[in-house]
């Protein structure tokens, strides 16, 4: 009971700020998940031996 009284009363503004924070954290998590999904898909098509591939990409000069 006494403990409960120590809890500061929250104003509605605080609650709004907290909700927004939570929402934006959620959005960020969602974004990170999206990014992970994108990288996973890209990983699947990337040439397998990066070092060899990059080394052997040799062009003649053009215009």
């Amino acid at each position: 009971m006494a403990q409960e009284q120590k809890q500061p009363r929250r104003s509605s503004e605080d609650r709004t700020a907290e909700t927004t924070e939570a929402e934006s954290a959620e959005r960020k998590d969602q974004l990170d998940e999206d990014i992970d999904a994108i990288l996973d898909e890209i990983d699947e098509v990337l040439e397998s031996n990066a070092e060899d591939f990059v080394k052997s990409f040799i062009q003649k000069g053009g215009q």
Binding site: I42, V45, E47, A50, V54
Partner: peptide, 28 residues
């Protein structure tokens, strides 16, 4: 300096629909 980043640079411009990374970004 990592070869993987150089590979991403090159493969961005690969014109094949299933392999080129620009084309993958379009598909996604």
């Amino acid at each position: 300096s990592d070869a993987k980043l150089h590979l991403v640079d090159l493969q961005y411009a690969d014109i094949r629909p299933g392999r080129g990374l620009y084309n993958k970004l379009v598909a996604m």
